[in-house]
């Protein structure tokens, strides 16, 4: 049993975990700022698919993976704008709107993407070793021999953590998710800010889709996210609405995904069915734990999450 647990093996699993977890990380961060603003968006899966399509399509059209990533951001933002309009503007039920968005995004991406199925994008985000940093033992292999999108995602985690917990704008973001009426009294335009964060969150989820269609699996394939949007939504709870923990959760998921195959090749006698089940078991566990109100409070769930805000409404 111990001969496979060599440093090389562990490092290769960790490096693969970061690569495999990045798409989920982007989507998770997008959902995180959306929920911090008090809005639940269950449309992440559909938004990721639209982002994946826009990423591949934008890249095929322009020849540049960065233009593709920009297109994915825009597509994600446009999809989330629908959610913002319905849930913030018209105060519709957030769960229903989000589910509708997933169904809509799945169908629309399949329909629009018909002509570029199987077309390889002219460029994609390949591994770039960061000079000097990549030479660091262990950490260099895990974090600094990755693709540009991975670096963007790591920078984003650091930035969002600082933004949410250390800036005035971040305080307002937390306020509209915790106590919108208090924020309103402070003179914050709750509806406008909420809409803004929903749209920005969608843009990040769109980029998460592009992390698949321009990163790990270049090209458009229908339904290529295969449920990762849902895992991202669940991970936000695991992360207790904290970007740094979101990264840990996404990499843990990526690690289980990548690690299970390495255990198989190492001849470890563990049922592959059991290993395949692990990420989902883990998701369910997190969800079960977080349904209790007390646990939710302990985890720090935004108090107004899922509730539409209406001025003067005392409900």
């Amino acid at each position: 049993m111990s001969d496979f647990l060599t440093p090389t093996f562990v490092i290769s699993v960790l490096a693969a975990a970061v690569a495999a977890g990045t798409a989920i990380l982007f989507a998770c961060l997008g959902e995180l700022i959306t929920e911090r603003a008090g809005v639940l968006n269950l449309g992440i899966e559909g938004i990721m698919l639209m982002g994946a399509l826009a990423g591949a399509g934008g890249c095929i059209w322009s020849g540049s993976a960065w233009v593709g990533a920009g297109a994915a951001l825009l597509a994600g933002a446009a999809m989330a704008a629908i959610h913002a309009l319905l849930c913030v503007g018209l105060r519709a039920n957030q769960v229903v709107s989000g589910l509708a968005l997933t169904i809509f995004g799945t169908g629309l991406s399949a329909f629009l993407g018909r002509d570029i199925v199987g077309m390889p994008p002219p460029s994609s985000f390949r591994r770039i070793d960061i000079p000097f940093l990549a030479e660091i033992p262990i950490l260099g292999r895990i974090l600094f021999q990755q693709s540009a999108l991975v670096y963007v995602s790591i920078a984003l985690v650091v930035f969002l953590w600082w933004y949410i917990f250390r800036t005035r704008a971040g305080l307002r973001l937390r306020a509209i998710g915790e106590r919108p009426e208090a924020a309103d009294a402070m003179g914050v335009d709750v509806a406008r800010l909420r809409a803004l964060y929903v749209v920005m969150g969608g843009a990040l989820a769109g980029l998460g889709g592009a992390a698949l269609s321009l990163g790990t699996n270049p090209g458009w394939t229908e339904g290529m996210t295969a449920g990762r949007g849902w895992i991202a939504v669940a991970l936000v709870i695991f992360a207790a609405w904290n970007p740094a923990r979101a990264a840990a959760g996404a990499y843990l998921f990526g690690g289980v995904e990548a690690g299970q195959f390495r255990l198989q090749t190492a001849g470890v006698d563990l049922s592959p069915f059991f290993l395949s089940m692990l990420p989902y078991l883990f998701t369910i566990l997190v969800l079960v734990l977080s349904t209790r109100e007390a646990t939710r409070r302990a985890l720090g769930a935004p108090a107004a999450l899922g509730r539409a805000y209406m001025r003067e409404d005392r409900g």
Binding site: A16, T216, T221, G223, E257, A258, F261, R262, T265, P272
Partner: peptide, 22 residues
Amino acid sequence: VWTNTWFDPAKERAAAEALLDG
């Protein structure tokens, strides 16, 4: 290696990478 899925591009890729690393 077994993936226990017919359709999951990213997972299938991860499986192939494990084999390539090996």
